[in-house]
Design a protein around this nucleic acid. Structure first.
Lengths: 195, 195
DNA sequence: CGCCGCATGTAAGAGGTTACATGATTCG
DNA sequence: CGAATCATGTAACCTCTTACATGCGGCG
């Protein structure tokens, strides 16, 4: 298993669109990649230091009138080369760890009504996500620097939307399954206390 | 943020269906929860020791003729109680870290044909997954111990299938978007070398 | 004055994978 | 005999989040 450090390249990639401070990098992760990637400041600052040690970025301290000073990191030629090499490599599959499904797998240990609550929470969350994605649609239209970039941003967003729709559809199916289970048990109450 | 140890409860949950060894627990994770949860032996053994220290499981060494001996862990009353309490709590949302989308987000740094390869790899992987899910459908039908358990297992599987279908649909959309981008650029080749 | 936003960093600690270490038994 | 499976465990090593520590400037 070719274990590469993804934070390293995620941060490096953020610098492609121009020199940035660690703080800027964090902002951009949250604003634009929030639905498929995240990095904390506790990862970003050390990553920038390491990138500098390795010569993939250069630093310059920027002094601004009446604003705190900050370090602007700029990607170097070597940085670009290494980034492109990383881009070409196959992506590792997403690690799956879904706590909701884990709990539902053990659903027979709880009340069906409790299981239903879990699903309703998921449904509410996915509805919110749907709105966010909707708002994002117009935002990337405005902010993309080129036709090419817009296409790739749309592709990334589209993935979120497809999965979001799938989760919403699943919530409906799951609710239906649990409701019919509750009807069955309500109609024919077998012994439950020692299950 | 109420940080609870999920491995602890995942392992504890595995013992609900009867006493098991650490090795058994690992098997069951792989066979039945593979698509939404995983635990390594390096987590499972220490987790069982801690569960024992905390009185949530009991141990018994099982001697078998001409087979290596093993430790059978059995969930205790307290274990069941704590497990049920954990089940009732809201599940943490899935942490998102999708390396494929990260690379595609930076797609304008590579050849569209390279981006296309990334998508085709994803598509191939999702096709395999689809077959696995299909096979799983009949397996849970055979192995569920009760009607109730079957419903919950079906709900968990259904989630995998919905998301799998969404990813396949996205692969098709993404391929189409990239192919039309390649046509545009092939027809009107603007300067590319310094992008 | 106190809080918020900007800005940089470190340290502690949890969580997680992999490799290592050991040993029995079974099957070809 | 050697490889695969069963079986248990530890150690090293990443990764990641959180909390802590510090300081400036603007705003109410």
């Amino acid at each position: 298993m070719p274990k590469v450090n993804r934070t390293r390249f995620a941060v490096l990639g953020m610098l492609l669109s121009g020199p940035k401070s660690g703080y800027d990098v964090k902002q951009e992760f949250e604003e634009r990649l929030g639905h498929f990637w995240s990095e904390s400041l506790g990862q970003i600052y050390p990553a920038l230091h390491r990138l500098h040690d390795d010569g993939l970025v250069s630093v310059k301290v920027e002094q601004r009138a009446r604003r705190p000073e900050r370090k602007l990191y700029r990607i170097t030629k070597r940085g670009r080369d290494e980034f492109r090499a990383w881009l070409a490599e196959p992506a590792a599959p997403v690690g799956v760890r879904n706590e909701l499904l884990l709990k539902l797998y053990f659903g027979s240990q709880m009340d069906p009504s409790q299981a239903l609550e879990h699903i309703e929470r998921c449904e509410a969350h996915q509805m919110q996500l749907r709105s966010l994605f909707k708002a994002f649609e117009s935002e990337i239209e405005r902010e993309a620097a080129s036709r090419e970039q817009l296409v790739y941003w749309r592709v990334a967003l589209l993935s979120g939307q497809h999965v979001n729709r799938a989760r919403l559809a699943w919530c409906r199916d799951a609710r239906a399954a649990l409701e019919s289970l509750m009807n069955e048990q309500g109609a024919a109450p077998s012994e439950k206390s020692h299950a």
